[in-house]
């Protein structure tokens, strides 16, 4: 069932043939902008210290966190939650054999795999020829990266769900999309890595779940986090998943109650 939905949404995406060409171009353009900004920073030699990453590590971080792992368009999810809230499908969906949130997750996993395979990976490949790009040198970090990637996407999905559910009370998906968009540039640590943030913002950002979406996966990929710490972080990520699931099911429970009371 789950796999069916995943492959179905994958096929729907394949139907849009030109999407991937323009998608690749715009991903590359965005990545080039980010890399160029950091190239300008490195030229001024201000960052030369033992703790700072090398330029190729920085480039790799920008490509991995900006182009690869965060390449998921959460707007679609928020919009479909909003639509089912407004049309009353939310209560109809309660009758489905498969839980609505699980259905949504399966669908978005499909979308994500599609956009990674068709857009992000080709873009990363092209960028890796163009700029200094580090491939992972240790197998253990490579494996850990995949685990972080999956946990990160799950957290991203859950955060978007949480925001999507807010449309029940706020009634405007538009504002909610923009609010979530507002949190990403500072808290996900992509263009501005978290170590650059001033205290106490840096500590806060390291704890909040957004760090698992972009920053931690790329740091793991680069092997810039010790293995022991990495495992702790992975457990932390799983804890965030659990916490978010609890929070969402609480809101979900309240929402469905509200809907059955109002008759949908």
């Amino acid at each position: 069932m789950f796999l069916n939905i995943v492959t179905l949404s994958f096929k729907v995406n394949i139907a849009y043939r030109f999407d991937f060409i323009t998608g690749i171009i715009s991903e590359i353009v965005r990545a080039v902008a980010r890399i160029a900004i950091w190239a300008a920073v490195y030229e001024t030699n201000i960052l030369i210290s033992s703790a700072a990453p090398s330029f190729s590590q920085m480039t790799t971080h920008l490509i991995i966190s900006g182009t690869l792992v965060t390449r998921w368009e959460f707007q679609g999810l928020i919009r479909s939650i909003d639509q089912s809230v407004k049309s009353g499908d939310l209560s109809i969906n309660l009758l489905h054999p498969i839980d609505y949130p699980i259905y949504l997750f399966a669908r978005e996993v499909g979308n994500y795999i599609y956009s990674v395979a068709i857009v992000a990976l080709p873009a990363v490949l092209i960028l890796s020829f163009w700029f200094d790009f580090d491939w992972p040198d240790k197998f253990s970090y490579g494996l850990l990266f995949v685990a972080f990637w999956f946990v990160g996407f799950t957290i991203f999905f859950l955060i978007a769900c949480l925001f999507g559910l807010l449309t029940i009370w706020l009634m405007t998906a538009f504002a909610i999309e923009w609010l979530l968009e507002a949190l990403m540039p500072i808290l996900a640590g992509i263009l501005v890595p978290l170590w650059l943030l001033p205290e106490p913002l840096a500590t806060l950002a390291r704890i909040l779940p957004f760090a698992w979406i972009g920053y931690y996966p790329s740091q793991i990929y680069l092997g810039r986090i010790e293995l022991g710490v990495a495992w702790i972080l992975l457990v932390g990520g799983v804890l965030w998943v659990g916490l978010l699931v609890c929070w969402i099911s609480f809101l979900w429970h309240r929402a469905t109650k509200q809907f059955t009371v109002h008759g949908g």
């Binding site: 405007t172 504002a175 609010l179 507002a182 990403m184 263009l191």
Partner: peptide, 29 residues
């Protein structure tokens, strides 16, 4: 109004990221 506020916050945040970057580093080009 809510939509406008959300947009202003989003732009403010991405400007803020650039602000932090350049403020810490001293500038760009």
């Amino acid at each position: 109004l809510l939509n406008r506020i959300a947009q202003v916050i989003a732009y403010g945040s991405s400007f803020g990221a650039i602000f932090i970057l350049t403020y810490r580093i001293g500038g760009m080009a």
